[in-house]
Structures are given as structure tokens and as C-alpha cells.
Computed example of a mutant assay.
Amino acid sequence: MIAWAHYPYQGRVVLVTGAGSGIGRATARAFLEQGANVAVLGRRPEPLQETVTGFDAEHVQVLATDVTDTDALERTVSAVTARFGRLDVVIANAGTSEPSRIDTFDATAWERLRSVNLDSVIQLARLTAPLLRTTRGNFLAISSIAGLRGDWDQFAYNATKAAVNALVQSLALDLGADGVRVNAVAPAFTVSRLTQERLDDPEFSARLLDRVALDRVARPEDIARAVLFLAGPDAGYITGAVLPVDGGTSASSGTPRPVKATRSPTRKH
């Protein structure tokens, strides 16, 4: 089991984008473990099938969908409601990242980042808000602490995530009177297929861990547990929040860790 706690998600319907790997996969499996019906979205069906392996087919729906294609996304949302009859929780997790420097950046690169990280979130919210009003449900975006601070060579990615954070806060105001809660989880550097190569670099890994109070890199399951809580009834008075799930990374002002600071004898990545 991913979560220690038990949540009342039996019979609830959850949609997770970018569910073929990493945070999306862990989140989808976490909801399935809690008894939810889960629709998993991603560009390729094979990784999505891996995500739902071991779970009853009655409770899963695999939908190969490009979230940047608005028409396809609309058909996908309709397919979820046709299958399960309702929608209770939407997890906008699909995202992408690439380095960006202002002197070499071009419109094509911006389009790639913006269309996945921001535009698809807006379209998903537009398509699902009427359904979430009916169930008094939850819309939750997987953002990043990159939307709260700057990073070297990542200005475009950070800009998209900052926009997601502001989007979440504004939608929380617009939808709150209808009983719909809108929040975001903001992870720091998390183990995934996309980040593993950098984590395998000992120098980079050591420098990264020097910024993390808990002295380890996040695992996708760490983020999934926070999502389960925020979308559940125990968080019923939380909306418009951007919750850092970052091991204390954003607690720092940027001052380096003292050389003689106490550290764990071993580091777990």
C-alpha cells in the first residue's frame, strides 16, 4: 500500500493525466488501492497498462490521449463519464520540462512547454468543472516548487508552473461557492524516468541533497500521499492552496549547508 491512512474513495471516480509513469502512476495506483475507479490518461497505452496491472479491470479505464489535443481531451472526459457515470477527482499531472536560456529560446520550445504544462490544465478544468460541480468534487494540479522560486536555465518551465499556481488560486475562488475545491501539490526534484539520469551523476546528486532538509530525493509515492489527503474529506476546508511537498527544499533561503552540519550516515535516493 502506498498510503498509511485509509480514505473513503470507494465508488468515487478519479481521472489522472500523465499516468504512465512517475508521480502520475503512483497517484493512480494510490487511488486504486483506496477503492476508487480510476481513468488513467497518457499518450501511450502500454505504460498505462503497466500502471493498472494487478487491479480489477472493473475499476480501471485506460485512455491513450494527448492532453494538448483539446478535441481528444473532450472525447476522453466524455468516455470517463460514459463508463463510470460521474467524476469526483481530477488530477492534472501531465507535464514536461526542458532547459531554457533566454538568448537561445524560441517560440517552438515555448509552445511545447506551455501547451502541456499550462494549456492542457486550463482545458481539463474547463471540461471537468461542470461535472465536479455535480459531485462537489476536487480539481488538483501537480505543480512544482519551480513555480514558487527561480532555477538556473529553467525560466520557461518555471513560468508555466507559476502560472499553474495562480490558475489554481483563481479557480478556487470561482468554483468554491459550488463546493468544488481546487488545490495544487508542488513537488521538488522527484525520482522518475526523466530525472534518473541526472540522479545517477554523483556530483549532481550530492549538490541536490545539500538543498534538501530531509536528506533524500522525493519518491513518487511521497507526492501521491499528499494528493490523497488534499482530495479527501479531511482536507475539506482547504482550497486555493499550493502545498510544497519538497523535503524542506523551499524552506531554505539558499544559504549553503554548513560543512560540519549533522548528516545521515547514508543517503537514500
Rank of each mutant, 00 (worst) to 15 (best):
I2K: 06
W4K: 13
W4G: 04
Y7E: 01
P8Y: 01
Q10A: 08
V14D: 02
V14E: 04
L15G: 02
V16C: 12
T17M: 04
A19N: 04
G20A: 01
G24K: 07
T27P: 01
A30P: 12
A30K: 05
L32D: 00
L32H: 02
A36G: 06
A36K: 02
A39G: 03
V40L: 02
V40D: 01
G42Y: 05
R43K: 14
R44S: 14
T51R: 10
T51H: 13
V52S: 11
V52C: 07
H59S: 10
V60D: 10
V60H: 07
V62I: 15
L63D: 08
T65G: 13
E74P: 00
T76I: 00
A79H: 07
F84A: 08
F84D: 04
R86L: 02
L87E: 09
N93L: 10
A94R: 15
E98H: 13
D103Q: 14
F105I: 00
A107I: 02
A107V: 01
L113C: 05
L113T: 04
S115R: 05
L118A: 07
L124A: 07
L127D: 06
P130E: 12
L131V: 00
T135P: 01
T135I: 02
F139M: 14
L140Y: 05
A141C: 11
I142L: 10
S143W: 07
S144R: 08
G147L: 08
L148V: 00
R149N: 10
R149A: 14
R149C: 06
D151E: 13
T160K: 07
A163V: 01
L167C: 10
V168R: 09
V168Q: 08
L171R: 03
L171K: 05
L173Q: 14
D174H: 14
L175D: 08
L175T: 07
V180N: 11
R181E: 10
N183L: 03
A184D: 03
P187V: 00
F189V: 09
V191W: 11
S192Y: 14
R193T: 09
L194V: 00
S205G: 02
R207E: 11
R211Q: 12
R211D: 07
L214G: 07
D215H: 13
R216K: 05
V217C: 09
V217E: 11
R219N: 09
D222C: 12
V227H: 09
L228E: 06
L230W: 12
A231S: 15
G236E: 10
T239A: 10
V242W: 06
V245K: 14
V245Q: 08
D246F: 04
D246P: 08
S252D: 09
S253C: 03
T255C: 06
T255L: 15
P256C: 12
V259L: 15
T262G: 09
R263F: 04
S264D: 14
R267I: 00
K268D: 05
